[in-house]
């Protein structure tokens, strides 16, 4: 059976309808990042004089963490979407999809895009809210290009982690187990992403952890788009390449594991 965009759309549409019916889920997915944003953004903002070379114009802390919080929102929203597979297995609907004449790859893509859609929406909502608490955007590339690249990076983060979640979901039977494993993964991934502090302020051993964390490249890429090159640690091109490579990897792995599922 060939991969078909019609099948992907059908499966995506189901996820979308389910999302619209459970607004609670959408709201809850915003609660945690919002808390971080308000707490760190407003309180820590008063502790730090600003980030960057004091001789030049510095960035406020709340502006600095905005790309991090957006990345975090997308990360949480997408990685936990894998639970949909476990949910469908538990409630029997997965069998309905698995016996349909639809390629497994289409199923994974439909599911992944469904999870990514809600994660991206949450990310955009958080981005909008960050301006309300006074975050500023100071890209040093064309604003439209920055916005476009920010969207690309957000989509890549969402797709990378939704597929990572799906890959785990093919192997974990219980929802509790899945949530435990995801929490275990998500927290270090988040704290070592450079979302809260510039990577060069970290001790070397933590820097190593940061550089092997794919999310760091997403946060750094968004930082280029939101805060400008001076605040970022790596060239934008490198961020994009690493992130795209990681997305390709998780997408491939999730499809392989899903096909092996009996």
């Amino acid at each position: 059976m060939r991969v078909s965009s019609a099948d992907i759309y059908t499966i995506w549409l189901r996820e979308w309808k389910r999302l619209l019916r459970s607004r609670v889920r959408l709201i809850m997915s915003l609660a945690q990042p919002l808390l971080w944003l308000i707490l760190f953004g407003t309180v820590f903002d008063r502790m730090f004089s600003g980030i960057g070379d004091p001789a030049e114009e510095t960035i406020s802390y709340k502006s600095f963490i905005t790309p991090g919080i957006v990345a975090m929102t997308v990360l949480f929203g997408s990685i936990f979407a894998g639970i949909g597979i476990i949910f469908d297995r538990e409630f029997g609907f997965l069998k309905e999809i698995m016996v349909a004449p639809v390629s497994r790859t289409s199923i994974v893509w439909g599911k992944a895009l469904g999870g990514a859609t809600s994660a991206i929406i949450s990310g955009l909502v958080i981005l909008g809210l960050s301006t309300l608490i006074g975050a500023e955007f100071t890209p040093d590339i064309n604003v439209f290009l920055a916005a476009f690249l920010a969207v690309v990076i957000t989509v890549l983060i969402a797709l990378a982690y939704v597929n990572l979640g799906i890959a785990f979901a093919t192997r974990i039977d219980s929802m509790e187990g899945f949530q435990m494993v995801m929490n275990l993964l998500v927290m270090p991934m988040f704290f070592l992403s450079g979302a809260f502090y510039p990577v060069d302020l970290m001790p070397t051993w933590l820097q190593v952890g940061t550089y092997v964390n794919p999310l760091f490249y997403g946060v750094d890429g968004l930082r280029h788009c939101f805060n400008g090159t001076a605040a970022a640690a790596l060239p934008l091109g490198l961020d994009l390449v690493v992130l795209a490579g990681f997305t390709l990897l998780t997408a491939t792995v999730s499809i392989i594991l899903f096909k092996r599922m009996e």
């Binding site: 309808k17 019916r21 029997g92 309905e96």
Partner: peptide, 15 residues
């Protein structure tokens, strides 16, 4: 070629 009604429910209750 086939239609199946599984032993356990396999409908999406949210739809």
């Amino acid at each position: 070629s086939i239609g199946i009604v599984f032993q356990d429910p396999s409908v999406d209750e949210e739809l």
